[in-house]
Design a protein around this nucleic acid. Structure first.
Ligand SMILES: [Zn+2]
Ligand SMILES: [Zn+2]
Ligand SMILES: [Zn+2]
Ligand SMILES: [Zn+2]
Lengths: 159, 159
DNA sequence: TTTCCAGTTGTTATGTTATTACACGTTACA
DNA sequence: TGTAACGTGTAATAACATAACAACTGGAAA
């Protein structure tokens, strides 16, 4: 794991950086980062945590978009498919990718207390996994690694 | 990963073996493997695949138990809590543990074609993960690793 | 034995998450 | 300028999960 998750950071900066990157990516790859999609990404970035689809939907609607589930699910699916967001299975939630500029193997560290989700890169973990799956003859297409526990902050509070 | 998943095997034997083990475990640890709970385990073993709670519920009801969701969820939760079954997040489904006799770190290999789920043990993968989380100051409580792809059989069919 | 309690099972009702199906508009492109 | 692919919106519904409460069970305390 190369990054320390849960670290303090300049959030406004990280958010606008990701949005800039998304705009660039859209232009380069011809992705259609339409208003709803961009708004959904903004919402995830502003929330800075894992958000449920209906929560995103509510905020999309407040910004003048539709208010039916598919509106949110489609935008979120687009973001996930294009590496701008991830789905956190354990929480039935979505979170903006914090490092969309590099092809990474995300691992999610989920704090059960404060519910924050940190995205770490664990190339080594997933390389191990790939090697094992290869031996078993299984072709990996997607990997989902999620860890539930206590983040450093909440660990401190508990003790 | 120490086991080859998706291998042919004597399924009736593996199923009855797990049930025997569950009975033994119940006696040793004082677990109350009641009729509904044992039936739920049987259903998962007979299905030999990941099954949704409502699917299990339907079969429980056919055997004379209640027909409301909590009946299934409670039995399944019991099995999961006691290591007799696992939850597959990706599929919102449950599967009988194939190796309940050892304390293992399950990794699920999910075939997107035939929907079979193989349970492999990946101690090495999760040890790597633990070490990384430790460095980040995160206390791991539960880990969930799920891999989506093509099993050897379906890989063959596709080519 | 009787009382009590924790735990189990059942029911109703409700909450939460996700998809299908279809209409209409927009974009890209021949 | 057709037209096909894609995107957005809506309504309806499916699928998954939990809350709240009543009734029963089985064992320990009195
Ligand atoms: Zn990411
Ligand atoms: Zn925390
Ligand atoms: Zn297992
Ligand atoms: Zn398969």
């Amino acid at each position: 794991m190369s990054e320390l998750p849960f670290a303090d950071h300049d959030h406004d900066h990280c958010a606008s950086g990701v949005l800039d990157h998304a705009d660039k990516l859209a232009e380069e790859k011809g992705l259609r980062l339409t208003p709803v999609r961009r708004a959904a990404l903004e919402i995830l970035l502003t929330g800075h945590r894992a958000m449920g689809a209906y929560e995103v939907l509510e905020q999309l609607n407040a910004k003048g978009f539709g208010n039916q589930p598919p509106v949110a699910y489609r935008a979120l699916d687009f973001l996930v498919d294009n590496g701008l967001a991830h789905r956190v299975q354990r929480l039935n939630a979505f979170t903006a990718c914090t490092q969309p500029d590099r092809h990474h193997r995300p691992v999610f560290l989920i704090c059960r207390d404060c519910e924050q989700v940190a995205e770490a890169d664990a190339r080594d973990v997933q390389d191990t996994l790939s090697a094992s799956a290869d031996r078993a003859g299984f072709v990996i297409e997607r990997v989902n690694v999620e860890v539930l526990g206590l983040c450093p902050t909440c660990k401190g509070k508990a003790s």
